[in-house]
């Protein structure tokens, strides 16, 4: 996984609550067996006029000019600003892959759905929780200024504006450490192989039916 330390980027405002993972990446693209290539179909239903299919040339599709991703002022954006309960619904990690593949490195919202939040950290995408009043303020700043950008510092856990305001955000220490160092969770867990084996041996004594090699059927 890529390291995340400091990121500066243009903010893309997506002023909706309950943005679900079906909206982030519609189901027809989940048939892919790869982790990459989802950026071009990020927010597909909102971004294009007609429904897309996986085998299309997406550069030839008619775009919905009202949608933020299609507005020139947000073209280079890499920080997504949204509303409460972002990423609700399906567990599809494809939603995170679509955001990162598009170039999003940070999401800022008042709250997230649990599975999406968790998936983000596994892919170097930083989901930041800021109070609703601050999010409101950021939405109006973005509307007022073309090219409005923010600086996100993971080490100091701060979002900074160009006029010198700083907003602190909370993050779990384990997740922060993993992101800062680009660590692989599986490698970390496998350092505890002996503990897992010990647990299994004890558990198998207590509940042998959990360890059947195959069903009776």
């Amino acid at each position: 996984m890529d390291k995340f330390t400091v990121h500066q980027g243009v903010v893309i405002p997506l002023d909706r609550s309950n943005v679900d993972t079906d909206a982030i990446i519609p189901k027809q693209y989940l048939k892919s067996i790869k982790r990459s290539g989802f950026g071009v179909t990020l927010f597909d239903d909102w971004r294009y006029v007609k429904a897309g299919e996986p085998d299309m040339d997406h550069s030839k599709r008619e775009i919905n000019t009202d949608f933020v991703l299609n507005q020139s002022r947000y073209k280079s954006g890499s920080i997504l600003l949204s509303r409460e309960n972002f990423g609700c619904g399906s567990s599809r990690e494809h939603a995170v892959w679509a955001l990162t593949d598009y170039g999003i490195r940070v999401v800022i919202a008042p709250s997230y759905a649990d599975i999406f939040f968790n998936n983000s950290f596994k892919n170097g995408l930083l989901p930041i929780v800021l109070e609703e009043s601050i999010v409101d303020k950021l939405f109006s700043s973005v509307a007022d200024e073309t090219g409005y950008s923010l600086i996100v510092n993971l080490e100091t856990q701060q979002v900074a504006t160009h006029d010198g305001e700083h907003y602190h955000f909370e993050i779990d220490t384990f997740r922060k450490h993993s992101l800062l160092n680009g660590l692989d969770d599986i490698g970390l867990t496998l350092q505890h192989t002996a503990s897992i084996r010990d647990y299994e041996a004890k558990r198998q004594q207590e509940a042998p039916w959990l360890f059947y090699e195959e069903s009776e059927g």
Binding site: S91, V96, N118, N119, K122, N123, L190, E200
Partner: peptide, 19 residues
């Protein structure tokens, strides 16, 4: 429910990192 990275994690370690 878990994401695909966690699917891989459980496959490889039989554990989930959870709070």
């Amino acid at each position: 429910g878990i994401g695909t990275s966690e699917v891989e994690h459980v496959m490889a370690t039989q554990c989930l990192i959870q709070k």
